[in-house]
Design a protein around this nucleic acid. Structure first.
Length: 531
RNA sequence: GCGCUCGUAGCUCAGCUGGAUAGAGCACUGGUUUGCGGUACCAGCGGUCACAUGUUCGAAUCAUGUCGGGCGCACCA
């Protein structure tokens, strides 16, 4: 809709025109402050320019009026245009808001180490990434969702050790001395039991078999992770194992040429020359590669696969890591501006106003699966997709268990269900409703229709700004408009029943499409559940 | 100390590529159709947009500085 308007104005004025939503709907559907920017070059007051511009519009199919107000140019869309657009949207419902972008994008997210189940922080990045993925695909981008599995290095050794400790203590009932760092959590005991079944008790005692144990266990851990993700409708196309990349290390090292050098028996990357704080070690004196080495090989492999654009979602505590990876990408001969790193900030949880208690059995970490069990996948996804990903977030679980308007996900679902219920109750057929024209609606109905038709713009904006909360904010507002309209206006039995039902269908289409882009299924009706 | 980031209503947060009177939800207070799901709706209360200076016709938005919070500053991932 906005695209059509922009295109028309661009043609008319010969330049990009800033289109905004008027503060007050009574001004019109769209507005532009273009007269302000023209006033300098034309040496005339914005108000006069606006008046002249407004007068220059002929009759056309899109606008019913163009009015100058205090220097702004306000546009009102014609009923005809809105009505036809609505009919088109309803007839092509699965295409609503779709576009034909063609870039190929590699989106890497979650990438949590295969050393334990996902916690609430991972969940946030996962939901953020998956929502972007859905938005991007809706816009036509060809996006690959990828998970990078850090299955090499210290953390894997630590996993083996941790399973042994847990098994020896809880299964073999031995006294164990805990080292400084090891993992904890209920899943370790489960893994230890499975290991004993598969390999026998010795696997828990033999220090030399830690690696073997860990390499077996990490696959089981990945199964847990994949299940946790699947339970919230998050699925990956590809998994890349760090361990599979190291064969390539010498070649990649050579490829970086001047970007790497030897000093003190180690190999360094000259990242400082690319804006990093200092140069970094990539291979230690004992020839073991550092974590960064793995990421360099991985990013090389990514770029060799030849995507148009690369997006990584990282925990915000890794933000200092961005310059060195970008430096490496440049040394490898690629354009680092094609790599965008988005950050997902920390999450703290409350329950009824009190800090959420972390269970010892979970290893003092709030597990994603526990929260999904408590409030459901829909609520979890909604919470994380409704706040800017890169600012710290605190939320109260209790708020999302309520079944009234204070709970946004409930509120939106209820709006959708209300429409479905009333459509089911009406005697009119789908065909009859679709045939109705949306012309001649009153002001409130017109406003509701316009709001519902804005979804495509919201999707585009949410994706291109990487701010997925714009979608949830929109859905909340649209649901609010619907509830209000419903309260004010009798639908069934009214003269305009067909029109109003059609209007409601457009609203339902937007709500349903928007929710599905958030990975949430729109409900046909609300069922009151006991807490 | 250095880097990044945030500071908007009592609370949780929008708004930030500069634009019309700064918004929403929660909380609190008071209301609502003898009608389609009241699981809803309406109204009220509440702000020096952390502070200062600058740029501009115009600043919550941009720049610089100050103060305050978070994160990072590994040959750990």
């Amino acid at each position: 809709m906005k695209q059509r308007v922009s295109a028309l104005l661009r043609e008319k004025f010969g330049r990009e025109v800033v289109l905004e939503k008027p503060k007050d709907r009574s001004f019109g559907h769209f507005a532009t402050p273009i007269a302000f920017s023209l006033s300098k070059e034309l040496r005339k007051s914005p108000m006069i320019i606006a008046e002249e511009l407004a007068a220059s519009f002929d009759e056309n199919e899109i606008f019913t009026s163009v009015e100058p107000v205090k220097g702004y140019l306000n546009f009102r869309l014609s009923e005809n245009f809105l009505s036809e657009y609505s009919t088109w949207a309803l007839q092509n419902s699965s295409d609503f808001g779709k576009q034909e972008k063609s870039e190929r994008i590699l989106l890497e997210f979650v990438s949590a180490n295969p050393t334990g189940p996902l916690h609430i922080g991972h969940a946030r990045g996962a939901v953020y990434g998956d929502t972007l993925l859905r938005l991007g695909r809706h816009l036509g981008y060809d996006i690959t969702a990828e998970y990078y599995v850090n299955d090499a290095g210290n953390q894997i050794d630590l996993l083996g050790l941790s399973i042994q400790l847990e098994g020896r203590r809880n299964i073999l009932h031995e006294d164990v001395v805990y080292p400084e760092s090891y993992y904890r959590g209920e899943y370790l005991e489960t893994l230890a039991r499975e290991a004993v079944e598969k390999f026998g008790n010795e696997i828990l005692r033999d220090v030399s078999r830690q690696k073997e144990l860990a390499l077996w266990a990490k696959d089981s851990v990945m199964d847990i992770i994949v299940k946790d993700l699947g339970d919230t409708n998050i699925f990956f196309d590809t998994f890349v194992n760090e361990s599979s990349l190291y064969d390539d290390w010498q070649r990649v090292l050579a490829k970086m040429g001047e970007g790497v050098y030897e000093k003190e028996g180690k190999i360094w990357i000259a990242s400082e020359s690319k804006g990093d704080e200092k140069d970094r070690v990539v291979v230690r004196e004992d020839h073991r590669p550092t974590y960064l080495a793995g990421d360099i090989v991985y990013h090389n492999q990514k770029f060799e696969r030849g995507y148009d654009y690369y997006i990584n979602i990282w925990g915000a505590d890794h933000h200092g890591y961005i310059p060195r990876v970008k430096a490496a990408v440049e040394f490898l001969g690629y354009d680092s501006s094609k790599l965008e790193v988005l950050l997902s900030q920390m999450v703290s949880l409350l329950k009824d106003g009190e800090p959420y208690k972390m269970s010892k059995r979970a290893g003092n970490v709030i597990l994603m699966s526990d929260i999904v069990q408590e409030i459901g996948s829909d609520a979890l996804r909604f919470i994380f997709a409704s706040k800017k990903s890169d600012t710290a977030l605190e939320f109260d679980l209790a708020e999302f268990k309520k079944q009234d308007s204070s709970n946004p996900i409930f509120y939106i679902q209820y709006a959708h269900a209300r429409i479905k219920t009333i459509l089911a109750k009406s005697d009119m057929s789908q065909e009859e409703i679709l045939r109705a024209s949306l012309k001649g609606l009153n002001e409130n109905a017109d406003a509701l229709l316009f709001d519902a038709l804005l979804l495509p713009e919201i999707i585009e904006d949410a994706f291109s700004s990487r701010q997925v909360q714009k979608l949830s904010d929109y859905l909340k507002a649209l649901a609010g408009s619907l509830h209000k309209f419903y309260y004010d206006c009798r639908i069934l039995g009214s003269e305009d029943e067909a029109k109003l039902l059609k209007l409601f269908m457009v609203v339902a289409l937007s709500l349903k499409t928007g929710l599905s882009l958030m990975g949430i299924e729109a409900k046909e009706r609300m069922v009151k559940t006991e807490d």
